[in-house]
Amino acid sequence: MPVGYEEMPEAPGTTASTEEVQTGLWRTLRPVIDYAKCTKCLLCWKFCPDGVIAVLEDSRPEIDLYHCKGCGICANECPPKCIAMVREEEP
């Protein structure tokens, strides 16, 4: 919600966590994991530059699409090539 300059702080700061910023809106390509082929090696988790890949209880990786910017590094690094980068307008 825009406010007038007088109500704004002197220096550009924010108390909001970056977790609240939906960087997933920047994405044009969406990573989709084919769990049938996934070996749970977790290289995707290790290489994700934004730390948006979580490891589930059964060791499968899960991508947080609210924050994933769609850079495709996970798909590039995946040894069995089980991550597809799908255009956002495609289901």
């Binding site: 825009p2 220096a11 550009p12 700061g13 924010t14």
Partner: peptide, 17 residues
Amino acid sequence: EPFGLGSVAMPDQFMEF
């Protein structure tokens, strides 16, 4: 009391700073 300094300001906020 954590906060971020030098944060992003979108076009609707930059000019005010």
